[in-house]
Design a protein around this nucleic acid. Structure first.
Lengths: 349, 349
DNA sequence: GTGAAAGCGCTAACAA
DNA sequence: TTGTTAGCGCTTTCAC
């Protein structure tokens, strides 16, 4: 009738059907490995297989997706791949999902709420089988919409308690609580906390852990500063902190970026670790071991989180395939992180 | 006829056509924003728009892809998202491409050649419009196949000189050459080089730069050690290096991971930087500024590389859309990296 | 054992 | 200004 501009993969089932004089149906069956189920003769099967091989047949996924209303691909929505924590998750999720035969559509939202909304919509239009989302912002209308569209979704790391969507995350509260408690057990009372972006859940939970651990031990909150997860902020806030009359005996930074800034300020001002000030942090980046004084840190169970999220998502997808009306129940999984002990905490007398 | 298990987005053009009593074609035209081109009455247009809105119509990308033989998505093949250099590239490419209306299918190959081959094939089956690849291995049959299938491809960072496929990468050779020259200008002669994985191109080029800079200045190669881009290897190799009778006055590590291992060994053995030994590295990770002695480093123009690669790819896609037979010419772009001067190089009188 | 034909949702050539 | 219809490549029902 009319011509399309781009003949992509010229070899289709039809091509094979014509060259072998076998019907489309049979060709499809052979190539899908259900020959015996339909009792296709060995002869026919061989003929088809040979042709497919010779011509270099590649099945057209798009057509399969349209026909089956399943795309064998899942969307992964990430605040920023430039953040090592997220890119590690992306790496694990990607590999695990590929191993299960899924493709992964990754979107980097640049920590922007607007970008996230656009990404989620674009993914939804692509007949994605499910989505794993690390929310970037506070908005959740577009996420509610996914629930209504019955697209299986799992949140990682950040989540909305009000939404009936499963999540798996680190128990940041407990992590911080335990870490502060550990400092207190080592005789520290004047513990300062340098936090990151205020409104993100992990930060809020960590700060809550700090506060409650202090309260639990009947200590006043010594100091809380900081407002973003950056080197610069860690540096500035530490400088500010060190100006104060009363010096802390320990500092808890809520991320490794903050820690590095803090370290720079500390060394500039002549404080040694752990002799003068003890230090603890979150994230447990590889380089912590290689700093002049290796720093004790909370280690998030990244691999576990990723694996559980995948498991949850695939379960939901399966459940939906069996009964498309079923509303999956919400799973709320919080994993308590561990403390990796290094040399930055001094035991006071 | 028969029922499919998963009614995904129930609202289709047909639904709208039926509820508004407007033909499918007209509905399609209105929704594609070409109403005026076809002089569709304002009345009809409004009716269609209203219905689409009310019903929450979401176009089915899969159907569009099949029909148009264009998927508006491009594949990004990465050795490992856990590597900050690659994840930064992924982040930039992702954002830029989304801004242009493309979706991005990312695959993490875990630095495995086999995984890469599988990924590339899977992407090819998905009617990808183009691919950006950072090759993981030495195999290139599957990449040649892409060329034959006329799928637009651009390599980043690692490339095959023999393949007629465009690439954009850092000029690692010049980077290393300039860095070693800089050390020599500062009076260093005993310059040791600790390298990473031998067979990867960036490593080979960097080592070549070291060797030729030494030869250019008529110095013997002082020392070359190392075999992988890891902390452990950097640590071990430095320990080994420091055992030797003749100590180096400067060390060039070919990655920041190696550097950190090297630093640990240096500090364990009581060497101060830059007093006892000068240090330079590659990668320019953010934390270099925050080490006890900030380390001078080669900085790869990651953003530029990503932007150029995207530009190249989109050009190829456009060219192909216009003339599907045209064989695009190969572009070979090498960008010379800059030296970020910090405090780790001592000037020898 | 094999095949004809319908249809997934969409676009565009052609007709009116 | 609008509509009819073919067909993208595939799976599956139903028939032989």
């Amino acid at each position: 009738m009319y011509k399309l501009d781009r003949p992509l993969s010229n070899i289709t089932l039809k091509t094979i059907s014509e060259t072998t004089n076998v019907s489309l149906t049979t060709v499809s069956r052979v190539l899908n490995g259900v020959s015996k189920k339909f009792r296709i003769s060995a002869e026919t099967e061989a003929k088809v297989l040979e042709a497919a091989n010779r011509l270099g047949y590649i099945p057209n996924q798009t057509a399969i997706n349209l026909r089956l209303k399943k795309s064998f691909s899942i969307g992964l929505v990430i605040p920023s791949l430039a953040n090592p924590f997220f890119s590690t998750i992306a790496s694990i999720v990607n590999q695990a999902l590929h191993a299960k035969g899924y493709s992964v559509l990754v979107t980097d939202c640049d920590e922007e709420e607007k970008t996230e909304v656009a990404s989620v919509k674009s993914l939804a239009a692509r007949n994605i089988d499910g989505m794993i989302i690390i929310p970037s912002g506070k908005d959740k209308k577009h996420l509610e919409a996914l629930y209504k569209q019955k697209i299986p979704v799992v949140f990682i790391d950040r989540y909305f308690k009000e939404l009936p969507i499963s999540y798996v995350a680190t128990n940041h509260y407990e992590g911080a609580f335990n870490l502060v408690n550990y400092l207190i057990e080592n005789g520290h009372q004047k513990i300062a906390c340098i936090q990151g972006t205020h409104h993100v859940l992990p930060n809020m939970e960590r700060v809550r852990g700090y506060k409650e651990a202090m309260a639990y031990n009947n200590f006043p909150e010594f100091y809380i500063g900081g407002s973003s997860f950056t080197f610069e902020d860690g540096y500035l806030e530490t400088k500010l902190l060190l100006q104060r009359q009363e010096k802390p005996t320990a500092i808890l930074t809520l991320s490794d970026t903050i820690l590095l800034g803090c370290l720079k300020a500390l060394s500039e001002d002549g404080f040694n670790i752990p002799e003068d000030i003890s230090l603890t942090t979150f994230d447990n980046s590889v380089y912590l071991d290689y700093l002049s004084c290796p720093v004790t840190s909370i280690s998030q169970p990244i691999a576990d989180i990723a694996q559980i999220a995948i498991r949850l998502l695939l379960d939901k997808i399966d459940a939906k395939t069996i009964d498309s009306e079923a509303m999956p129940k919400q799973e709320k999984i919080l994993i308590t992180p561990t403390i990796i002990h290094r040399k930055s905490v001094r035991k006071l007398n």
